[in-house]
Amino acid sequence: MDIASGIQEPFDLIRLSLSERVFVKLRGDRELSGVLHAYDGHMNLILSDVEETIMIVDLPEGQTEGTGAVSMAKRKSEMLFVRGDGVILVAPGGR
């Protein structure tokens, strides 16, 4: 129990982020920043004003992990439903 922030269960953290910008880390090297409007127990999300960043690692043959060049693709979306099973992490305050 966190008395200072009033968080008793993990979902409280998400509830306190409603109408705030959040950072979401997804499976498949994707990240989102958007304003949170809805969520449910599966961590299905509805976000607006979303910027998605997709990390694409170009690993040339024979190169070890972490040495390949990382390129990033960005996309914007006005209103987005995100299926919860792809969510890894949600952090208040986007970036």
């Binding site: 498949g28 509805i46 607006s48 979306s77 006005e78 209103m79 987005l80 439903f81 995100v82 299926r83 792809g86």
Partner: peptide
């Protein structure tokens, strides 16, 4: 489904 883009 990964995402659904909705009409804002």
């Amino acid at each position: 489904v990964r995402y659904v883009q909705l009409p804002a």
